[in-house]
Write a protein that binds this DNA or RNA. Sequence first.
DNA 1: TATTGTTATACTCTATAACTATA
DNA 2: TATAGTTATAGAGTATAACAATA
Lengths: 177, 177
Amino acid sequence: MANRDNRNANVKMKKRKQNRRKSSRRNEIPAKIDLGHLSDLIGYALRRAQLAVFRDFLKSFSAVDIRPTQYGVLTVIEQNSGLMQSQVCAALGIRQTNFVALLNALERRGLTRRQRSASDRRSRTLYLTRKGEIFMRDLRRINRVHEERVTSLLGEQERRRLVQSLNRIIAAAKNDS
Amino acid sequence: MANRDNRNANVKMKKRKQNRRKSSRRNEIPAKIDLGHLSDLIGYALRRAQLAVFRDFLKSFSAVDIRPTQYGVLTVIEQNSGLMQSQVCAALGIRQTNFVALLNALERRGLTRRQRSASDRRSRTLYLTRKGEIFMRDLRRINRVHEERVTSLLGEQERRRLVQSLNRIIAAAKNDS
DNA sequence: TATTGTTATACTCTATAACTATA
DNA sequence: TATAGTTATAGAGTATAACAATA
């Protein structure tokens, strides 16, 4: 992603780049492959773009060993102290059954803790530990850099429009079954 | 996706909806959960939107039992008859090692076929069978409906802009490592 | 009877290593 | 020696069923 060093964003000089891999040395055409209408498919474009952004996210967060879903969970707990597990799951579209191991891992690292609710002893409410709160400062900083790198590809305005469109799709899906 | 029936998109009447699940009958607040800056995160929005669109894709193509990646492979082969496996993989970002089973499945269904290349007998070139070509007409029809449903959420212009932005991100990622 | 959290489990995707046959 | 395709395998991510404790 993003100009990590000299990366020229220009598509123009692809001719030079052909020789990166010495493949083209003989007969093979480097074959400008035609994706057909694929590149105009929303689903396909979404998938490729999402993978690209996640790749940058993973690299950015590799030092702190945090995955996108974990960052989502930590953020929601931070913003809404005391939520039930089921509520966090619903908010993020995670299944309770898959949420357990995820939480266990965060708890083992001392970032979050569960507490039996007094009003409904079936449920457990979630909190960041002190350590978790401090950790979140690092995460937010890392995330800011990551976001800025992605944003630099589009510019502020286009980025805002993009997120708006995406949220429109997401909102529509929620009214779905 | 998309207005499949009456779903009122309004957030307003959540008061009524509380009683859907008799939960709120006592003290619990239905809790408008704060996603924090999550909803403004490109990666998060991309992920949720991609899942939503794929869900619609899967439902649309369930009758013909075709997954997004399979549709991509078939489309590329149709547009570029005679490509090597490795070329299709590179174009779509699939690993050769994972491509084998995928191709086997398409071949078992009689949609594609492999042919040893005369010029380089290590490689195999890919073609649609006659059956595969006919099948593609169905797929394109199904895909058109699917795309129109997604597009209807945004309008033509916004959709075009969205895809453009996504492709900009994708292109930048390619210049990456 | 229904719900919260849990375990066990299975299936899909994706990733790595090692092999074969060709080049 | 390197490359195209292949196998085996391991790891995420995600899905369903069934259970205990509590409502």
